[in-house]
Each structure stands twice: as C-alpha cells, then as structure tokens.
Amino acid sequence: MKQVYFTAGPAEMYPTFEKHLQDAVAQQLGSISHRSQKFRDIYRFTVEQLRTLMNIHESHAILFTGSASEIWERVVLNCVEHESFHLVNGSFSKKFFEYAVSLKKYAHKQEKLFGEGFDYAEVEVPEYAEVICVTHNETSSGVQMREPDIHKLKRSNSKKIIAVDMVSSAPYPDLDFSVVDTAFFSVQKAFGLPAGLGVWIVNERCLAKAEKLQKHEDLTIGGHNTLPMLWKNFKNFETPATPNVIGIYLLGKIAEDLNNIGVDTVRKQTEEKYKLLNKFVETSQNFTPSVVEERHRSRTVIVANTKLPSGEVIAEIKKSNMIVGSGYGPYKDTQIRIANFPAVSLEQVETLIQVLKKIDD
C-alpha cells in the first residue's frame, strides 16, 4: 500500500507530480538542449507561474541552481565584501553562518537556543554588516520568523541587503518583494518534487553588488554560477550550464496547479492543517510543542517533543502507512517532525492525528 510522507524533505510528492513527469518523459525533455527555444519556453513559463504564485516583482530575476545549500554560498560570495550578519536558531541557519565563515568573511551572528524564535524588536544588526541573513522557516527546529518582522528588519536597515531562506516554507510565506532583496528555496519540500533544484530570487541591488565585487582585485565571486553570469543568461531564459530541465518543467507545472487553487486558498489550507496538528500536540499527554511561543511555531514543519523514544513513535505510525520524521541532529531520539506541505491533504492530516491519539492513550 502506498505510504504518505509527512517528512520535511524529501517529502510527499504533489498529487499531480506523476502525470507531469509522464508528460515530461513523453516530450523527451531530458534530451533537449538548454539553448533551444523549447527550453526557453519552459524557463519562461516557470518564471511566470512563480511570479503569480509568490507575487515576485519583475525587478527580481528567478534563477536556478543545483540546491538551496548552493545559494548560501552564492549569496555570500556575490553580496558580501567584508561582513555578514546571521540570525541563528537552528541547524540550517547555523550552516548559513558557517558558510560565510568558511568563505573568509567576517560573519556576525545573533543566536538563540534551538526552538526559540526572533522578533524584530530584539534584533541588533551590526553597523557594518552588508547582508542580513534570516531564515523564515528553520527546518530543524520548527521555528518561523514572521513576515512582518522580516519586513520591519529590512525597512529599519534599508541600506543593507536582506536574504531570506524560505527553503521549507515557500510558497506559504507572503513576502513583500518590494522589500526583500533576495530569497531562495528548494523544490523537495513544500513544492512536492524530487530534490535537485534550487530557486534563487534576486534583485538588481544584489546584481550591482556582485558586479562591483567582481572588479575587486583581491576578491572572488566564484567560478561557477556567479550572479552576473546567471543574470546575463536569465535575460534570454537560459542558464550558463546544462540545468535540471525536467525539474524546471515540473516546478512550473506544480506552480500552475497551485495557482489554479489560488495562493490564498493554499495558505488557508496550510493554516487549517497546522491548527489541528498544533492543538493535538498542545493537549497531548505524550507530546509537547518544541517551540514554546506559539507565534514562533512553523506552519509548515511542526516539531514535537515526545516522551516515548521517537523511533518507537515513528515505527508505530508507519504501521498505518504514514512516515513522519525524527528530530534533527541531537534531537533525533526526543522529537518528531511533521511536514505540513500542500501535497498532504486535510483528510490525511486528520488520519495522522487519529493514529497519534492511539499512541497517546
């Protein structure tokens, strides 16, 4: 019997994925040239669908990489001359910071305990930091930074670039791209696709910074997928090197499916499922929310502490053909993570809660 994946990525495939994949194979998209008109049409279509879905302004390019992790490096190399600033409250926001350190930048961080979130008023941005790196949704800890807080942070630091990691939440967050300079995600989470494609949304301010750094004798902005090269190719809906053509095609088709539903409906459905899961965890005997403050709890990755060993909980749930994730890193045995992505229906969430209730008895 088919299993339902409530894992945080790779995650449950979007219901229309198989049909779109069959169409891609039938069209032999794995064999076409990335310099062909057919590919340009695919790239253009995907960009149009993402602009509609996520309200991305024409001022921002939409670029493709091999992964979202790659984009951490691209942001640091192309947008930071000396100093970056990172809000760290989980394993992935910490890795973004560590990438900057490894690239020999003077990286500042404001760090909170695992499971704690940031509000705008408590953030202290260093005077000389060029880029503020924030994580909208920390996949490891289940913490979100609310969109209004991100927008206020940028508006009060208007001369700095703000970069938003929305890897495990896009397209749920309603980011204002007249404020946000750059954001990025990967497709194997809330878009319900196989891994292997990163999406980098970036504005002309970031491009200007990269072009300035490129002229610097003592700096490098990298040798592969530099922002100026990606942008130059984007103008013609092309890529510098052979990309994941099928992945780009599938992303465009899934984005179209979500547009047909409507992003407001997608968000309402996400919130409805979150409320059910959150209510269960809050009232459970064997589970408690890992994120204490409700306003900081992720709507797309629910993390719960478990009194029982997480391995036992996961094994029991699996008997009902459902897969949930373990806690991340040191929390592997004491937490479970439940992805609340568009690919999972309200009915499937309700079924999962019934299984969890049986474990709770």
Rank of each mutant, 00 (worst) to 15 (best):
K109F: 02
K109P: 00
K109Q: 12
Q110M: 14
Q110I: 03
E111S: 15
E111Y: 09
E111R: 15
K112A: 04
K112H: 10
K112V: 01
K112S: 03
L113V: 02
L113F: 05
L113P: 00
L113N: 10
F114V: 02
G115I: 02
E116I: 01
G117M: 03
F118L: 10
F118D: 07
F118C: 08
F118P: 04
F118H: 10
D119A: 09
Y120D: 11
Y120P: 02
Y120V: 03
A121L: 11
E122H: 06
E122F: 03
E122S: 14
E122K: 13
V123K: 14
V123I: 15
V125N: 11
V125I: 14
P126A: 07
E127Y: 07
E127A: 15
Y128K: 14
A129W: 09
A129L: 12
E130S: 11
E130T: 08
E130W: 08
V131D: 11
I132F: 05
C133M: 14
C133L: 07
V134I: 08
V134Q: 05
V134C: 11
T135N: 13
T135K: 13
N137G: 11
E138T: 05
T139G: 07
S140M: 08
S140E: 06
S140Q: 07
S140G: 09
S141I: 02
S141G: 04
G142D: 03
V143K: 13
V143G: 06
V143H: 09
Q144N: 10
Q144E: 10
Q144T: 04
M145G: 02
R146Y: 00
R146V: 00
E147S: 12
P148V: 03
P148A: 11
P148G: 09
D149M: 10
D149S: 14
D149W: 12
I150D: 01
I150R: 09
I150W: 02
H151N: 07
H151E: 09
K152L: 11
K152T: 01
K152G: 01
L153G: 06
L153F: 06
L153I: 04
L153R: 12
K154S: 05
R155I: 03
R155G: 01
R155F: 03
R155K: 15
R155A: 11
R155V: 04
S156Y: 12
S156A: 15
S156W: 07
N157I: 13
N157P: 10
N157S: 14
S158G: 13
K159I: 01
K159F: 08
K160E: 05
K160T: 05
I161E: 10
I161G: 13
I162F: 03
I162N: 08
A163E: 05
V164N: 09
V164F: 06
V164T: 04
D165M: 08
M166N: 04
M166F: 01
V167R: 00
V167N: 00
V167G: 00
V167E: 00
S168F: 11
S168W: 06
S168P: 01
S169Q: 06
S169L: 04
S169V: 01
A170W: 03
A170C: 09
A170I: 01
A170V: 03
P171T: 01
P171E: 07
P171S: 06
